[in-house]
């Protein structure tokens, strides 16, 4: 019996990254702008998507992939708006992986403008898994507290945009949006910050304009 030392140096997330790169290339070629939405459960991902879909629908083709541990409820909420939705039920897994998105993608029409991927509600694990998205959003709702960026740095470090939600509740809460913004920017100074309320519509014009201009630049990069 001989013992041998084998130097490997390979990424444990290597196969996820490879599939994510394939998805990114495929979506880029079709000109589909994809957003991966991450946040704790109950921070308002599905409600924000309902509002954004209602605004974009008619002018753009929109699709939504819903990731949940159980049930088709979120996909049904989106479908009731007349928007195409695909549910991924993870049966216990706390995050989406590129492989799961890849399987659904086969049935997604090629002429979409926007594809939203709502990750499983969890502010930790989804941050480690690239899904091949064009952009990553982290949502933070005012009832969760403005200390979350410092406590969950990974999610804020890996995101491109921070969407503060439920801003209509700010008068009733000790949540300081400036502190949340400052803490998030100290972890990731490149974050774009949007302050929104799905109830009053605050900040949704900015978010919509950002989506449309990002999709345009994706398409002009392709041309």
């Amino acid at each position: 019996m001989t013992t041998k030392d084998v130097l490997v140096l390979q990424d444990l997330l290597g196969s996820n990254k490879k599939i994510a790169a394939e998805i990114r290339a495929k979506l880029g070629k079709k000109g589909i702008f994809a957003v991966n939405l991450m946040s704790s459960p109950g921070s308002g991902k599905t409600t924000l998507l309902e509002r954004l879909c209602a605004r974009l629908q008619g002018r753009f083709r929109v699709g939504v992939i819903e990731g949940d541990i159980a049930t088709e409820r979120d996909a049904e909420r989106i479908r009731s708006l007349g928007v195409a939705a695909w549910q991924i039920t993870t049966h216990g897994a706390c995050h989406l992986e590129a492989r799961m998105v890849g399987r659904v993608l086969a049935g997604v029409p090629a002429d979409l403008d926007f594809l939203f991927i709502e990750n499983v509600g969890n502010l930790v694990c989804p941050a480690s898994f690239d899904l091949g998205e064009s952009e990553r959003w982290v949502l933070l709702s005012s009832p969760e507290g403005d200390d979350k960026p410092a406590k969950y740095p990974e999610a804020f470090l890996s995101a491109n945009s921070l969407v503060l939600t439920k801003a209509d509740l700010l008068p009733h809460l000790p949540f300081d949006p400036d502190r949340a913004r400052r803490e998030a920017l100290s972890i990731n100074p490149r974050l774009r910050v949007f302050v929104t309320s799905a109830l009053t519509g605050q900040g949704l014009d900015e978010l919509e304009a950002h989506l449309i201009s990002s999709r345009d630049s994706l398409r002009s990069a392709r041309a």
């Binding site: 013992t3 490997v8 480690s128």
Partner: peptide, 30 residues
């Protein structure tokens, strides 16, 4: 927080510290 010790800038890039690698295996060969 995440602040440069030299100039105080917050615009830092993580060069090391995010990796998850299989570094090496010790295997037994007949």
């Amino acid at each position: 927080g995440f602040v440069c010790a030299a100039c105080g800038s917050r615009d830092l890039e993580v060069v090391e510290g995010r990796e998850l690698l299989l570094e090496r295996l010790e295997v037994e060969v007949d």
